[in-house]
């Protein structure tokens, strides 16, 4: 059983999808991000996705980029991210880390895997690392028993889909739309098709990200996917708030709405 698989098993037993909530490490501050992620857990978010802020996040839309810029301007370091992961993992919620590849290479792939394991992280989601370039990560994640989530997209060929999920452990990340992160008024028609294509080649749980921002959307996506991944909408709660306290309140409200959404799926 993979580390994050426990969360998917539990949700499956309850007949619902897992709710994954994303927040950049160090946004708005190191302590503030721990408070935000803890609030998300308390509101019913099942899995916390900690994004390592990066200067050039090509897969992310304006909300995550702005939050990442704030975190970096505040001086957050990769070592801080590991400390945040440790603090959030202590709440009991599984913590998965989303990261662009250069910060990991710079830290040292094996060293990062070692320290992520020690911090209680479950593994990595790697938006700009495809399996063909991942030899070092494949070895390190095996050595430390970490999960690895590569992305699949509507444009992935059947052959690439099969190859990519073969290298995944824990869950598969299906990018629901061709585009960057950010809440949208409508989720994609391409997502259910992609999820069913993934299901034809793997037993692994499939998480769907990009575009979900409301409880109703979470319910819709939870109707066909094993995991509903929400980022920008949650981050905006903190980004748009006049102070952290207000932001945490908004975060709890949206977290609860999304948690209710995945429990009332439109199946």
């Amino acid at each position: 059983m993979s580390r994050i698989g426990v969360a998917f098993e539990k949700a499956r037993a309850e007949g619902r999808a897992v709710l994954v909530g994303c927040m950049p490490a160090g946004f708005p501050t190191v302590e503030g991000s721990i408070a935000a992620m803890t609030a998300m857990v308390e509101a019913g978010v099942d899995v916390i996705e900690v994004e390592i802020p990066y200067s050039d996040p090509v897969m992310d839309g304006p909300v995550i980029q702005k939050a990442s810029d704030i975190a970096l301007a505040g001086g957050v370091r990769t070592a801080d991210t590991l400390r945040i992961i440790e603090a959030v993992a202590a709440t009991g919620a599984p913590v998965v880390t989303m990261t662009y590849w250069n910060p990991i290479e710079r830290y040292g792939v094996d060293a990062f895997a070692r320290d992520l394991d020690a911090a209680g992280g479950t593994g990595l989601i790697t938006p700009d690392l495809i399996p063909e370039e991942a030899d070092e990560w494949l070895a390190a994640s095996d050595a430390y028993g970490l999960d690895r989530t590569f992305l699949v997209a509507p444009s992935s060929t059947d052959a690439r889909l099969a190859m990519t999920v073969e290298h995944c452990r824990g869950f598969v990340y299906a990018t629901a739309i061709m585009g960057v992160t950010g809440a949208r008024s409508q989720t994609s028609d391409a997502a259910p098709v992609l999820v069913s294509r993934v299901r034809q080649v793997t037993e692994l749980p499939v998480g769907v990200g990009l575009g979900v921002g409301t409880g109703a959307q979470a319910g819709t996506v939870g109707g066909y996917a094993d995991g509903v991944i929400v980022g920008s909408a949650l981050i905006r709660c903190v980004l748009d708030a006049p102070d952290l306290g207000t932001g945490l309140t908004a975060l709890r409200t949206l977290g609860a709405e999304l948690a209710e959404g995945v429990r009332a799926p439109a199946r």
Binding site: W101, D128, I130, E132, F150, L151, P154, S155, T175
Partner: peptide
């Protein structure tokens, strides 16, 4: 695969690979 020795390659979102 686009490698010049240890350089080059593709570090991109899967959505762009096609």
């Amino acid at each position: 695969a686009g490698h010049f020795g240890r350089f080059g390659g593709r570090f991109v979102p899967e959505a762009l690979v096609a």
